[in-house]
């Protein structure tokens, strides 16, 4: 199914957020996630369903002012 990861369309087969992160190549990266604008904590990723059309945001620490 097609979803959006950080604004880029991706074809994935996984159906929960934890599995999607693994499938998309994030592995054990230090990232935080939001699905359709809502924050999903690390501990809830495995139980967070992902459906076609969902929009994922995957962020990491960066420089800031």
């Amino acid at each position: 199914m097609k979803i959006s990861i950080n604004g880029v369309a991706k074809d994935i087969t996984s159906t929960n957020l934890a599995a999607v992160l693994h499938e998309a190549g994030y592995g054990d990266a230090r990232v935080a996630t939001a699905v359709n604008g809502h924050f999903v904590p690390v501990g809830q990723r495995a139980s967070c369903p992902i459906e076609a059309g969902d929009q994922l945001e995957i962020v990491a620490p960066r420089q800031g002012g």
């Binding site: 950080n6 604004g7 998309a24 935080a32 962020v59 990491a60 620490p61 960066r62 002012g65």
Partner: peptide, 8 residues
């Protein structure tokens, strides 16, 4: 600091 999109 801030948070920004991370590439796989």
């Amino acid at each position: 600091v801030s948070v920004r999109r991370e590439a796989a």
